[in-house]
Nucleic acid binder design. Structure first.
Length: 822
RNA sequence: GCCCCCGUAGCCCAAUGGCAGAGGCAAACCCCUUAAAAGGGUUCCAGUGUGGGUUCGAGUCCCACCGGGGGCACCA
């Protein structure tokens, strides 16, 4: 055997095996309904083609591939698809800069990433590849939009919306993070615009309640974030009469028990209601106040420490239960799009109302006795529990009883009822940009909003490029006159296409359904095939989508369920959020100059070593600081493992009876198989790798100073190692598998099975403690009884030396521990 | 301000309430080698952020604090 045969040359292995794997195509999922193998659906969040793959991709896909390859080895029919989330702004911005079409940049990047994925050795079923910017894909966005429209789940309305001045488009609430655009970071402003919405609020209750289905499969923090985002609250609607106005005004409150403590009334300054209510001689003040508020950015307006502002509207509201007259104010701390855009203010028990009352000298009346200082004097509201006072029929009641009682009273009088409110707003889906799915609506002067008939889909994007795409506040599509002007599908008269495109989160809300039947030309997905594959067994991706993509996908799934197209209500049974790859304690960035290039790492250490480093660095959820890990060390380990496989392969042929091999090594191998199996199942991949390292060392010792490379136990260990290692380092494992005399591919080798007979230990070391200190160790049978062990322990000389008479207590945990309390 | 997660050798990380160390990095040394690299091996290193509590027994459970990370923050 030549030494060079045992040398581990990652680059050579990559070249050799990548081509062979592509020919063998071992990861194609079977659609044969008679395939007896149980199915598993593993999904990675599909990439946006921003350039080549980066370190973050390297981590997610390495992690997900461990799970996918494990399932393949366990004999599942695995669906592990790949596609690209290829609509979106960066392509458009690049196209403007280069005077090109967004498709050029997009599809070039997709090819680059696809090539990198193939080299990275991920176990994809490439036959299902999709790109959301293909007309064959976005056609179905439009088809789905039409279905939503028919059901009243897609509608157009005017209102204040979030506008990103940088990207020149509106944004959904979910895409505004702390007042800034989620994508570009610019400060978001409010504009009054007529836009398309999806009625996700109709599903608020189910989005909340169905979380029970994934309670055990999703990270707690993602569930918490979604719960907070949906923001369900329970309370009551209360109708107040406004003097000088026929229509009463309804307010929502979570504390109807404090109704008697309402000392003023506030409407959102920006709501139309404010001017409707406003007394004529106060209108100038309101208009002036509105102008002041409009000058503020959202950041300033929403700052919690901002001083309260407002203006009296010259009107009084009448408390429906006490009959008390209270002044009506307009203020910007009341939001026009939550509840009814108006509140009853109870300064004693709500800090915001108290701040306002103190600023404007409004009365503060305690109606819940909490035992704390009077808020009117302390300046601190008392929102907690207590006994009702100054509240007529509620006096003496505790909070929950008072709420029940007051709701009864309101109901009897017809001035209110229990109510539920959500923080969740409808999903604004229009975008004033080009590189997205055209909204398939035609506006006709006579017929109104007319959907483009299904048989005329897709409404393809017109061919615009370069300067024509520059943001100008209205969609670039508006300038494509030939495209815009069409005949109304209903009456045939002149009409105009809607010129906005859809939020690209629409694309990703159902792509996982399309993977089951990517080429389907008659439907977005094949219902029968989806029944076999769905829902997704394991989803892997970043936590940044906790309330974006994941919430929208859950919404889509529920709508499609109601349409009878999907057989499940939750799309993702288990969710794994991988950590980030950082460098020297900080996120990689150009400005910090601490970027690490995935391609360069692979060139230097090989695909397997990079993947192994990602997996071995720590738990998958944790961030990896690339400065703390060593791909060079990973490469060394792989070389070591490779030599074990190569030497075992050279010394023996397949088929030897392992039972004739060295028992000690066999025990190590089988214990490793057993543990690695459990560790992979529980996603503790870093520990699984540590076990593989131990097995490699044990095999090394067996070859060098034990029974030798030809021993069947060495072969058995090397073969098991190869298969386990193939989850993380497929090239090294495949070559090792070949050296061990097996044909390609190791992907079909099958997971090793631990022999229970080799897992039992003949003896266990039992620790004997006296008062918690170890005083003796006994070699005992694993099956020893408690009584036997107690007798044995008490008979020990070393133990007796520390005992003074009879022990008070003896705790026996057979077979591993005895603790004697003297 | 409120809520959640995490603090274990110089570093990354293990440890069903039961002997604090599985694995790796770094360091030192030995073997192999003409030499170096590669390879093989040995050794060094913390009492688990701090202070209480529960328990026969706490890194693990509870409370408070300190430090780091994350989420929410006028939603009535």
């Amino acid at each position: 055997m030549a030494v060079s045969d045992e040398q581990y040359d990652p680059q050579a292995l990559q070249e050799k095996w990548q081509a062979r794997w592509e020919a063998l195509d071992p990861f194609r999922a079977s659609e044969d309904p008679d395939d007896p193998r149980p199915r598993k659906y593993l999904l990675d969040m599909f990439p946006y083609p921003s350039g080549d793959l980066h370190m973050g991709h390297g981590e997610v896909f390495a992690i997900a591939d461990v799970i996918a390859r494990y399932w393949f080895q366990r004999g599942y029919n695995v669906l592990h698809p790949i596609g690209w989330d290829s609509f979106g702004l960066p392509a458009e911005n690049a196209a403007i800069r280069r005077n090109a079409h967004p498709a050029e940049w997009t599809y070039a990047n997709i090819e680059t990433q696809a090539t990198s994925f193939r080299r990275y050795g991920i176990s994809f079923d490439w036959s299902r590849r999709l790109h959301t910017s293909d007309p064959e894909y976005y056609r179905w966005n439009q088809w789905l939009f039409n279905r939503f429209f028919e059901r009243g789940l897609a509608y157009r309305r005017g209102g204040l919306v979030n506008w990103c001045p940088q990207d020149q488009t509106v944004l959904a609430n979910e895409q505004v993070v702390a007042g800034h655009c989620e994508r570009c970071g610019a400060e978001v402003i409010r504009r009054e615009l007529t836009q398309w919405y999806f009625k996700i609020t109709d599903y608020a209750d189910r989005l909340l309640d169905d979380m029970a289905e994934v309670q055990d499969g999703w990270p707690e923090r993602v569930l918490t974030m979604q719960r907070n985002w949906i923001g369900r609250s329970e309370g009551a609607d209360v109708r107040f009469r406004i003097e000088g106005r026929d229509e009463p005004v309804t307010v929502y409150t979570t504390r109807p028990d404090t109704l008697f403590g309402a000392t003023f009334f506030v409407v959102a300054a920006d709501a139309p209601l404010a001017e409707e209510i406003c007394a004529p001689d106060h209108l100038d003040a309101l208009i002036a106040y509105r102008a002041e508020v409009a000058k503020l950015s959202d950041i300033e307006r929403l700052a919690t420490d901002k001083e309260k502002t407002g203006v009296f509207l010259g009107r009084y509201a009448v408390n429906p239960v006490s009959g008390e007259r209270i002044p009506v104010w307009a203020a910007d701390y009341v939001l026009s799009d939550y509840g009814h855009g108006a509140i009853m203010a109870v300064p004693a028990h709500d800090q915001r109302d108290l701040d306002f009352a103190l600023k404007f000298g409004l009365p503060v009346r305690v109606v819940v006795h909490t035992g704390l200082a009077d808020p009117g004097e302390s300046g601190v509201a008392t929102p907690g529990e207590g006994t009702l006072v100054n509240s007529g029929p509620l006096d003496g009641l505790a909070k929950t009883e008072a709420i029940t009682r007051i709701v009864e009273i309101l109901r009897e009088r017809g001035t209110g009822d229990a109510a539920v409110n959500f923080r969740l707003r409808d999903w604004l889906l229009s975008r004033q940009r080009f590189w997205g799915t055209p909204i398939p609506i035609i506006h006709c002067a006579d017929c109104g909003e007319v959907p483009v008939p299904d048989d005329q889909l897709p409404v393809a994007l017109p061919d615009l490029r370069g300067e024509a795409l520059a943001p100008k506040g209205v969609s670039p599509l508006a300038s494509a006159t030939d495209w815009v002007n069409v005949d109304c599908p209903k009456c045939g008269g002149p009409a105009r296409r809607d010129t906005d495109t859809m939020d690209t989160f629409v694309d990703s809300s159902w792509y996982f359904l399309r993977y089951c039947s990517p080429g389907d030309e008659t439907a977005p997905f094949d219902v029968e095939r989806l029944k076999r594959w769905g829902p997704i067994d394991q989803y892997v991706g970043g936590v940044e989508h906790a309330v974006l993509h994941l919430l929208y996908s859950r919404f889509f799934t529920k709508v499609l369920y109601d349409m009878g197209l999907v057989g499940f209500t939750e799309p993702f049974l288990r969710l794994l959020n991988q950590g980030q790859v950082i460098n020297r304690g900080k996120a990689m960035s150009k400005s910090l100059g601490n970027g690490v290039d995935l391609g360069e790492q692979i060139d230097a250490f090989g695909v397997d070593a990079v993947r192994l480093t990602m997996i071995f660095a720590g738990p998958p959820e944790d961030d990896i600081d690339w400065a703390d890990v060593s791909p060079a060390a990973s490469q060394k380990f792989l070389a070591r493992a490779f030599r074990v496989m190569a030497e075992a392969g050279a010394a023996s042929a397949p088929g030897a009876d392992p039972a004739t091999g060295d028992t000690e090594l066999r025990k190590v191998a089988h214990r490793t198989i057993d543990e690695v199996t459990r560790l992979v199942e529980s996603h503790r991949f870093n520990v699984a790798v540590a076990r593989m390292m131990e097995l490699t060392s044990a095999a090394r010792r067996a070859i060098d100073s034990g029974p030798g490379a030809a021993d069947p136990a060495v072969r058995e260990a090397a073969e098991a190692l190869a298969v386990m290692l193939s989850l993380v380092a497929p090239y090294c494992a495949e070559e090792g598998w070949e050296r061990l005399g097996h044909g390609p591919t190791i992907a079909r080798a099958g997971w090793p099975v631990a022999d229970p007979a080799l897992l039992v230990q003949e003896s266990v070391t039992c620790v004997v403690q006296v008062a918690g200190k170890v005083r003796d160790r006994l070699e005992v049978s694993p099956e020893i009884s408690e009584d036997e062990l107690r007798t044995l322990a008490l008979a020990s000389d070393k133990v007796r030396a520390h005992l003074d008479g009879d022990p008070r207590k003896v705790i026996v945990r057979a077979p591993k521990l005895v603790n004697i309390v003297p």
